[in-house]
Design a protein around this nucleic acid. Structure first.
Lengths: 154, 154
DNA sequence: CCGTATCCATTCCGATACTG
DNA sequence: CAGTATCGGAATGGATACGG
């Protein structure tokens, strides 16, 4: 049977996973955020087979996360740069990195740390705040139908 | 050839993806955060085949994200509850949801919204702050070798 | 109700070869 | 360098059947 697609799923998390919920896509975005633009540079940095990389690049372009632009150095090939939608995934990658650093022992052998470019100090953990600025925890959250939905059903 | 594992990868993002970088794992965690504990409830909520659900549950238990506990109702079966490591993935799921709501049109047809339980107001976007409290953007970030690594190489 | 086991189709992935 | 094409093995996923 064919693999189920979450593109029609009702849950926004499932929809997002349909686009970036595989082993390679987020790593490609991670490298793109570091400035990688060329096919071969992605391939070498990731250690991924070229056919798979080609497939994922097409998929990410189709999802509006990457954009194909003419080569900056005048060569005849493509470069892949993040769109605003793609760049906005940086929050997700920071969340992944912070979770990994906290919970996967030895995951950060090379000791890479995200720092504030202004003063070189490590960044704080991601925080979720309420509309009034209070810091929220998991236990403070609830998932409800939005105003528009409630209005529609009323 | 066998599928490559990122368990030995040097990048913490790759390490994390090795655990939760597939189509189902984060959805299982999402449902677990909502209180789902039983095999059949996961299966129905996700629409996933039972064999792969069993596989993913084992994998998540092995990764220390879920924990098997005796059934709370006295029946002879297992329940799957999140560990602290698993609960801590809530930040990642919030990041996914917010990105999806922002960038995937129509992803939230049912209009579910994360709200502050205290006042019912929608939560603010996740924020990353510097050690001095300044709010940071993607352009403010740099990735450097940590202090311990620098000390070691000195 | 809770899984495990099996069958089968599809997909994924890596290696390699090939084109321009 | 930048891909495309193809092949084979492994993993994924769905359906169903089976046992506790």
């Amino acid at each position: 049977m064919k693999k189920k697609s979450f593109a029609e799923a009702e849950c926004p998390i499932a929809r997002a996973l349909d686009v970036v919920g595989d082993w390679w896509s987020l790593q490609i975005v991670r490298d793109a955020l570091r400035g990688v633009r060329r096919f071969t540079d992605f391939a070498q940095g990731l250690g991924v087979a070229k056919n798979i990389l080609a497939d994922r690049l097409k998929r990410l372009v189709g999802a509006g996360i990457l954009q194909v632009v003419p080569a900056s150095d005048g060569s005849a090939y493509n470069e892949y740069v993040l769109t605003a939608k793609g760049r906005d995934l940086w929050v997700l990658l920071v969340a992944l990195r912070q979770w990994s650093d906290r919970w996967i022992p030895g995951a950060n052998e090379y000791g890479q740390v995200l720092v504030d470019a202004q003063n070189g100090e490590p960044v704080a953990p991601l925080e979720l705040h309420a509309s009034d600025g209070r810091k929220l925890d998991l236990t403070d959250l609830r998932l409800v139908a939005s105003a528009s939905t409630r209005a529609k059903s009323a």
